[in-house]
Structure formats: C-alpha cells, structure tokens
Design a protein around this nucleic acid. Structure first.
Lengths: 235, 235
DNA sequence: ACCTGAACACCGTTCAAGT
DNA sequence: ACCTGAACACCGTTCAAGT
C-alpha cells in the first residue's frame, strides 16, 4: 500500500498546460456545451487539471473570456485574409462585402462568440487587427479618413459578420404554445407585427441555426454599404 | 422582556410588496449602483425585506430582468407617443427619426438598460408594442410589408435608440497608460486606426456618458433611413 | 396572502503549501 | 515552474415553516 504509487490516471497528455491550450480548451468547451458551461471548474476538468491551476496561466475569468475572443477573431482574420483584394481600388464594396460574409461563416461555428465579442472586444488585439485591415481596404477604395471612421461606427458588429437580433429565440426555449393560437392573440395587440409575420416566408427556410438571419443580414449590410458608397460620391 | 414587543424597525412603509414595486425597485437600484449590484439580496435589502420574499412576486431572476426591460421600454413608449405623427404620410423619415432619438434620450437615464434589453427583449410585451407602433408608422409612410420587415431587422436595436459599440470603454476602467505612448505603440500595428484616431475630434466633445456616440448614432441611423427611403422609391 | 430562516449547489477567487 | 487542497465570499434558489 505504501509502495504502490498511484497509477497514471490518464496515459495521455502529460504535457504541461500553456495559456494557448487553456484558451483553445475554453473555445472547444463553449462550442460543445455552450457558453454557460464555460466555468473555471468545468474547463479545468476538460483539461485534466484542478480548477486553481488555470490561474497560473490566466489572471482571472475576464482574461479567459478576452482570450477566447482573440482565438475566434484570429480565426476570422485568417479566413478573411484569403479573400482576393486586388480589385479593391475600383470595387471596394464587393471586396468588403465578401470579407464580411466570410467572417460571418466563421462565427457560425461558434454561436456563443458574438455575445462574448460584444462584451470583450474593447481591448482585443485581434479585433483591432480586423478593423485596421478593414479600414485599410476602405481607404484604398477611396473613402476619406472621416468617412471610414463613420463607416466603422455605422457597421459596428456587422463588420465582423453578426448582428444581435432582438427577437431571437432562446437557445433552449421550449415550444410551449400552439403558434396558431399565439398568432390570433397577437393579431389584436400587435396588428402590424402580425401582418409582417403572416406575410413573411421568414421562418424556416434560410434562417441559420443561431439568432441571425442570413437574408436579413445581407439586406442590412447592403443598405449600409450602398449608403457609404453614396456618401463617398458626394463628399 | 417577554412583554416588550420589538419596536417597528421602520416607521414608514408597511405597504406590502407588489410585483410593480419590486420591478421599479430593481430599475432604481440598477440606475443608482449599476447592473452588477442588482442581486436578489441587494434588491431585497433596498425594499426592506428578506431576499426570499421576492420570489413571492417574481418567479426568478430571469423574470425580474425581463420585468425591468418592460419598465424602461414602457417609459420609452410613453415618451415616443408624444411625438407628433400627423405628417407621417408624407414625411415618415423625419417622424421616425424623431421618435428614435426620443427613445434614445430615455435610455440615457438607464445606461445599463441596452445590455439587458438585448438579452431579454425576445418576449417582452413592451418591446413588441414599440416595434408594432414603429411598423405602423412605416406602413403609413407607404412602405410595403416586406420592406417594413427588412427595416426592423436592419435597424435592430438602433430602432430603440442604441447601438452596442464594440470599442466602448469599460464603465469603471482605470486610466492606466499615457495615451501619447499608447498612440505610438498603436501606430506600428494599427496604422489605419491610428490615422482615424489622430484625425478625429472624436473624444470628449459630443460623446455621451455611456458607450455610444450621439453623432455616430445619427450618422448610422440616417444611413439606414436614407437607404430605406431609396429602396421604397424603387420598389 | 405574504414573508422568513436555514440550507443547498454552484460560482470566482485567495492563500499557503506541495513537487 | 507548475500545480493543488482547503477555505472564503457571494450567487440564485428550494423548502418547510411562520403569521
């Protein structure tokens, strides 16, 4: 009993943790089990370590969250860097549009990321890199510094490929009521919204898995890009 | 000792709680001490009651948060209802713009509200009322049902008077570094952003207290409204 | 009908200690 | 250098009980 060293619980990974492995583990955990499951204790377990060990590699949970933003947005930076930008001088709108939709595709693999980006983008180097590159393309397209500045604000998170939809269903919401009955109740109080819902082929077809609709995203994006083009022409 | 009934701890409010008083207390607490201070225990103390008493009036914290959204957005609904809409048939853009800026003014008094709205708007009756009324104005302005639908998505939270700025400073962030030094460091890595910051009269003057800039808000809003007007003309 | 006390499960985090 | 165990302060919440 005294001699019997406890066997290695896992024959695998005895490589020490690094900040990078911690952050990628956090992203994987959020991808697989949702952002709610990303706790220090869960993440430690996922990495085969005790919760307190994480604090050797990351100052606190805020830094962990900020780190996951950088992991995801660096993935975006990589993907958008492969978009051909040689025509940006004459056709900036198409190039920018293509990059933004490519960014959006990356986010589809990390449906939790938009919320975390919104709350932790402020000082993220990867987000700064993204917007710096976007600004460069707009400048090369001929927009003034002022107009580029306005453009960044006007696009906001849409530049990164997502919008925060106000009426998105909860990720694990129960279907509780007969939609037909609900529509009738709605018709009295919200006639104009009812009219829209009734008229829309909106539910189902081109709706993506998370709280954002591809067609509506592109409509809003084009509205803004067209508007910027117009402002650029008259300035 | 046995006879001495304990004195009334407060000579004031012996009115029983109601859901309304709970929700308004929650809004007041968030206004005064920030959304982070809005815990069941803090709120109970604010209301002179034990934490568990709140659960008699509100099912759980989610319902509490959803309730604060309705309090704030009902305040918005009241304010925007006072905007003159008689000219909406010929001048919908001005009317809608005015209403949205009025909504924005209400939110300035509740800087915590935008985040809570974004996370709890989904099934809020007051938010539905707001967007229903907005839809009605756009319809009266001559927009098709389809275009109104697109407009709601394209405007998103901007219709309620706010945008979630990605680069907003943390509410209680420390000023940690000399901005001059930071600018130099930035210049190498983010030349285009540096160009913008250097060129902008952006910091200070018309920036509002919270994470949203009035001038940029109006620029983005007009970009979208102008675009909708144009789409309406060509449809 | 309205409120309470004690307890539970779960957080993030500190600290002194282990190898 | 890297990891751990025990403990703390603070959450939201359940439940049985009080008036």
């Amino acid at each position: 009993m005294a001699m019997a060293k406890h066997a290695e619980p896992r024959t695998e990974s005895r490589v020490p943790l690094t900040k990078e492995r911690v952050l990628h583990g956090a992203v994987r955990l959020a991808d697989q089990r949702g952002i709610g499951a990303l706790t220090m204790r869960n993440l430690a377990q996922e990495l085969g370590v005790e919760a307190m060990s994480l604090y050797y590699h990351v100052a606190n949970k805020e830094e962990l969250m900020a780190g996951t933003v950088d992991v995801v947005v660096d993935e975006i930076n990589l993907v958008v860097s492969e978009v051909d930008t040689s025509s940006v001088g004459t056709d900036w709108k198409r190039v920018v549009r293509q990059r933004i939709l490519a960014a959006r595709d990356v986010l589809l693999g990390h449906p939790w990321a938009p919320d975390v980006i919104e709350s932790h983008a402020a000082m993220s180097p990867s987000v700064l890199r993204y917007f710096n590159a976007l600004s460069g393309l707009l400048r090369q397209g001929g927009l003034s510094v002022d107009l580029v500045h306005h453009a960044l604000h006007a696009l906001g998170s849409r530049a990164l490929g997502f919008t925060h939809e106000l009426f998105a269903p909860e990720p694990d919401a129960e279907e509780e009521a007969d939609p037909g009955v609900m529509m009738e109740q709605m018709a009295d109080e919200y006639p104009y919204l009812t009219e829209i819902v009734a008229h829309a082929s909106h539910n189902g077809e081109r709706t993506l898995g998370w709280c954002d609709d591809q067609e509506e995203f592109e409509f809003g994006l084009d509205l803004l890009l067209d508007g910027l083009e117009r402002r650029n022409a008259t300035m």
